[in-house]
Design a protein around this nucleic acid. Structure first.
Lengths: 344, 344
DNA sequence: GGCGAGTGTCGAAGCGCTTCGATCCGACTC
DNA sequence: GAGTCGGATCGAAGCGCTTCGACACTCGCC
């Protein structure tokens, strides 16, 4: 293995000079720098990560805690994780993948072992047991999600309340008055991750202002569950003309069901989804949707954590503005006896 | 930060003794061990990862290279990644998440910097440019997937050829003679990852033996694409009575389409999928399927890499035996004019 | 022509751990 | 009771890097 000393010898300088060439922390004459760089190149030198971490007490690693479960909103998680990894690389950081399994112990372990310089947590619950540890930790951290109490913490998330409001606005603008909300699986609400509730409260508030009738039902993503839920919704509110879906897995079954029931989308029933663009685009009817900006969240989290590591940056809650993209699944409310209402 | 020296002082022993308690590499009297362990506990000591890596030249980190793209077979990838992370922890390893973006450079970087002790590569292509580097690397590696030339490398993968054969067997056993195969997106074949081709060749071979007629069509996962593909299939082979689907994203659209065309599954048309169990279970008709054992592959890869790190274990290609689970989507072929054929 | 201010480079002291002898001591043998 | 063996512990030497203070040298200036 090639070491700093090898490079120094090859370039005819001292080890510290090579180090300064690498870090840029002191000025080095152009000629020396070039010589050193050539030697590095020729010898194929890579600094030893362990030695560097030990000497500098910075590992250039960011820990990313992903949820253990692989059943829910997987594509979003994956997209965030990959965005985190690629963005981190552009700042010279690598990413350590931790699963939620270890819970708070993982935070302690990372903190204690100096394995990572900072942490990014996904899938944060409202009252997450890791939060107290993070607050008193010596290392920066950023949450993707929004806990009940965010004081002393940095967070990045979609403004789900605003997302709910945007959906309500859009459907109200199209003339809809009775709206059904197909939510995440009951388990998501039980785990108190918050985002589903925030959507709902934004939705409820705006619906109140706009005079919409809202019916909310949590729902598993399976075809059977969606079928049962939709059945109950139409039983309870036969006048329902629009759905808002916040459940990646439920979109396809919902569209399939409506088709089967000979309810045309968007002519008879409008559907607005809150989901990644990818899901919206690939649906059997391209979905008018509010995007969950997974990549942007990942990128943002890294940028914030890197800023903190650089001494810049403070604790702040960043809620990304939701953007509704009009596709084909939502149209004006069909007015009974008015065929014009069925023109898209 | 608490150091080894702090623990040693607190326990009234030398630093090396503490180290040996931790590593178990020399025998330590029970009383000393207990004293040291109590001190570790009380002080909340965690060994510094960098120092440990430097001194021992082992980082206790396994690098995992995941594909960059987030459009294809995402759930499988995520499941593998999480299985790798959790399994690695049980062996005392952490996982470094690398994206395919860097390509061969990442292999060199990890190798040179000693950031990780070993590598696991996902989404390996038939002629992957990383393979030569891995062969001459000083660190063990395991591929999830199967390249064209696996000499000098360890691989774990599902035996896709056998999976294809199992599907053919099952459908033949139910009396089907004309079978259509809906494959992965054309991009998957172009990238030459191999698994799709292996399925196909297994399928073709067994079909030949059994006298089945096979029609294979690559297909994007979108509803529109599946619709077009299925249309063409029925045009070309009106006698088709069964589908084999190897494309997670296409299963739902396929079932929706068949329903729309009033072809009942499994009464009129049988469907067998090659996909993760989760997808099969959640489909609108629970799918008879050959599982892609994501977790098992991840676990296996880690176990193999750990064995190699321990000096045990050799280069070997492990092809997991496919298992077909009978659910509800495949039944006996409907014999024209024989209503009994429609009894499941 | 000597002084201060830069500028570029070097040496050495660690960072916290592992690991290799070396040492110590009690138990056992003949 | 001297000799031997082996288990338990210690000391010290690094691992490869960063970083601080020191040093040498150049330059412009009064």
């Amino acid at each position: 293995m090639v070491t700093l000393a090898d490079v120094a010898q090859h370039a005819g300088v001292s080890a510290s000079t090579v180090s300064y060439v690498l870090s840029g922390k002191r000025s080095i004459s152009a000629s020396t720098r070039e010589r050193v760089e050539r030697s590095i190149e020729q010898l194929g030198y890579h600094p030893n990560a362990g030695a560097r971490a030990l000497a500098s007490s910075r590992s250039n690693i960011i820990a990313l805690m992903v949820p253990l479960r692989t059943d829910m909103y997987v594509p979003v998680m994956m997209e965030i994780a990959i965005a985190v990894a690629t963005t981190a690389r552009t700042f010279g950081y690598d990413v350590l993948l931790l699963t939620g399994e270890e819970g708070p112990a993982a935070v302690r372990r990372i903190e204690g072992s100096a394995l990572a310089d900072a942490m990014i947590l996904m899938d944060v619950e409202l009252h997450d047991d890791r939060l107290p540890l993070l607050r008193e930790a010596g290392r920066p951290s950023v949450l993707i999600g929004l806990p009940a109490d965010a004081t002393g913490l940095s967070c990045v998330d979609l403004d789900f309340a605003a997302a709910g409001a945007v959906c309500a606005d859009h459907l109200a603008g199209l003339g809809h008055r009775e709206i059904a909300v197909i939510g995440e699986a009951p388990g998501v609400y039980e785990r108190l991750t918050g985002f589903a509730e925030r959507t709902l409260s934004g939705l409820r508030e705006r619906s109140g202002e706009l005079g919409l009738r809202l019916l909310h039902r949590p729902c598993e993503g399976s075809y059977a569950a969606v079928s049962a839920t939709v059945g109950r919704i139409f039983d309870e509110r036969p006048g329902t003309t629009a759905f808002i879906v916040q459940n990646e897995a439920a979109t396809d079954p919902l569209l399939a069901l409506l088709r089967q029931q000979r309810r045309a989308v968007p002519e008879d029933i409008s559907v607005v989804a809150i989901c990644p663009d990818q899901v919206a685009v690939h649906a059997s009817v391209p979905l008018t949707s509010v995007a969950v900006p997974a990549q942007e969240m990942g990128r943002h989290a890294v940028e914030q954590v890197v800023a903190k590591l650089a001494g810049r940056g403070t604790d702040e809650v960043v809620l990304l503005r939701p953007e509704l993209t009009v596709r084909e699944s939502a149209g004006p409310r069909a007015v009974p006896g008015d065929p014009a209402g069925r023109v898209s």
